[in-house]
Design a protein around this nucleic acid. Structure first.
Ligand SMILES: [Zn+2]
Ligand SMILES: [Zn+2]
Ligand SMILES: [Zn+2]
Ligand SMILES: [Zn+2]
Lengths: 136, 136
DNA sequence: ATGCACCCTGTAGCAACTACAGGGTCAAGA
DNA sequence: TCTTGACCCTGTAGTTGCTACAGGGTGCAT
């Protein structure tokens, strides 16, 4: 399959596929006589894995480790579990942090009663963390 | 005040202050005879505004608009409200999206029973969105 | 005079792509 | 046969918001 087909099959931008090859996340495929990349099913499966992991928020380096692991089926899988658990913890941290942010923003946005910039409570609140309710 | 003092006063990296000047977010300050930057209180207030807004997640371009607005005290403040409301909506979207992610990751992480990579449910789940419970 | 803390400019690096510029290849239609 | 258009190639530069040098100058104390 040519790169355009792989792109459509996996919902991945062509430039992104070439980028993944360049950084060594995907193996270089065979080339046709015209120097076109030619992919098979294992390539498609690997790219699907990468895209799904990216959609779940894993970094490229985490995905690299996960792929190394799945390339070596006899290895103990605890590292995969560790990577995923750590990522889950990071997502939870991020949610907590954004929730604080949301509360503070809700408070700030609610302060505006209209009028000129000189009297705007929103602009005032942005210049003064002292008026914030919580840490963020 | 020299750049080091401004840095300490606002909790901003020196390189970041110079970066803000370079991109036109902070005005170029006066220079001493030795070509050192020399800041006054208005600079400090402006940088405080910028840092607080960044801490609240506003982009540089949003902050630029907000500063433009506060530089022109007679203008109607509805744009500030619009920018802040839109940002709040984005934060809420992000929270919703991360919550879906968290649920999916919790499910995936819980699948691992230990063993070898070939049998790992975590690795399997990462390669197959079909096994996901929701959209993400 | 020499050490040290501080300041300057300019450039390059990070993550994870994305967007060209400038070219080659190939099948179908006029 | 010629040409149009869709596809492919490489290589480089842009995005966001910083951060980290390299290589130099300044100012004060010992
Ligand atoms: Zn207002
Ligand atoms: Zn605050
Ligand atoms: Zn496992
Ligand atoms: Zn999924």
């Amino acid at each position: 399959m040519k790169i355009g087909e792989l792109s459509r099959a996996t919902g991945t931008n062509i430039e992104t596929i070439r980028y993944y090859e360049r950084i060594g996340l995907l193996p270089a495929p065979h080339r046709t006589a015209a120097n076109y990349r030619s992919y098979g099913d294992p390539h498609r499966a690997r790219l699907t894995f990468v895209r799904h992991s990216r959609d779940l928020g894993f970094t490229i380096e985490e995905i690299r480790s996960l792929l190394d692991l799945s390339d070596d089926p006899a290895r103990d899988c605890s590292e995969a579990d560790r990577i995923a658990s750590r990522h889950l913890a990071q997502v939870e941290d991020k949610i907590a942090q954004l929730t604080l942010l949301r509360d503070e923003l809700t408070r700030i946005v609610g302060c505006c009663r209209g009028g000129v910039a000189a009297d705007c409570r929103v602009i005032e609140a942005l210049g003064d963390h002292g008026s914030c309710a919580g840490a963020h």
